[in-house]
Amino acid sequence: MQIFVKTLTGKTITLEVEPSDTIENVKAKIQDKEGIPPDQQRLIFNGKQLEDGRTLSDYNIQKDSTLHLVLR
């Protein structure tokens, strides 16, 4: 499925993911596309910070959902 990740600069990254993917996996995909190390990434969905060990389906993230990427 496709999800979107919006950065603070207003750029939107499109990712191909599975609901069973962990947040860690998603961060690795963002690193592949953008070169941002996962330990600098914080992903936010519906105002909640997403934890590495959880999956997209844990957070009820579905296709065409938009996550927000904050760098630390």
Results as ranks from 00 to 15, higher is better:
26 V>G: 00
70 V>S: 13
7 T>R: 03
28 A>R: 15
14 T>H: 09
12 T>H: 12
35 G>L: 08
65 S>M: 11
8 L>N: 12
41 Q>V: 06
29 K>G: 03
15 L>W: 01
63 K>P: 13
3 I>Y: 01
34 E>N: 07
67 L>W: 01
66 T>F: 08
50 L>E: 00
35 G>N: 13
37 P>K: 06
19 P>V: 08
62 Q>R: 08
20 S>W: 10
5 V>P: 00
45 F>P: 00
51 E>H: 15
62 Q>T: 11
8 L>S: 14
15 L>G: 00
34 E>I: 04
68 H>V: 14
2 Q>W: 10
60 N>L: 14
21 D>R: 08
7 T>H: 01
48 K>M: 13
12 T>N: 14
16 E>D: 08
21 D>V: 06
44 I>H: 06
63 K>F: 08
4 F>Q: 15
12 T>I: 09
31 Q>L: 10
21 D>N: 05
3 I>T: 01
18 E>Y: 15
69 L>E: 11
68 H>N: 14
34 E>A: 03
70 V>R: 03
54 R>Q: 13
11 K>Y: 14
19 P>R: 09
65 S>T: 15
59 Y>V: 02
39 D>R: 05
15 L>P: 00
26 V>P: 00
69 L>A: 07
1 M>E: 05
38 P>L: 14
71 L>M: 13
66 T>P: 06
16 E>N: 04
39 D>Q: 08
3 I>H: 00
54 R>G: 12
50 L>T: 10
44 I>D: 10
32 D>Q: 11
51 E>K: 02
19 P>G: 11
14 T>P: 12
2 Q>N: 08
39 D>L: 09
43 L>Y: 10
50 L>F: 08
70 V>N: 07
70 V>I: 02
57 S>L: 05
64 D>Y: 01
55 T>V: 06
62 Q>P: 10
68 H>Y: 05
41 Q>G: 13
43 L>N: 00
24 E>W: 15
26 V>F: 14
54 R>P: 06
49 Q>Y: 04
1 M>I: 10
14 T>M: 08
31 Q>E: 01
8 L>V: 09
53 G>V: 05
62 Q>H: 04
72 R>A: 13
54 R>M: 13
44 I>W: 03
15 L>V: 01
52 D>L: 03
57 S>T: 11
39 D>N: 03
70 V>D: 14
20 S>M: 10
35 G>M: 11
6 K>I: 13
64 D>V: 03
71 L>K: 07
50 L>W: 01
59 Y>E: 15
3 I>W: 00
13 I>V: 12
17 V>N: 03
45 F>K: 02
45 F>L: 12
7 T>S: 12
56 L>R: 00
25 N>D: 07
58 D>L: 09
41 Q>I: 06
28 A>L: 05
55 T>H: 08
9 T>F: 05
12 T>G: 06
44 I>F: 05
17 V>R: 01
9 T>K: 06
64 D>R: 01
64 D>T: 07
2 Q>K: 01
71 L>Y: 03
56 L>E: 00
14 T>E: 04
63 K>L: 13
35 G>D: 06
17 V>D: 01
71 L>D: 15
50 L>Y: 01
22 T>W: 12
7 T>V: 15
11 K>G: 11
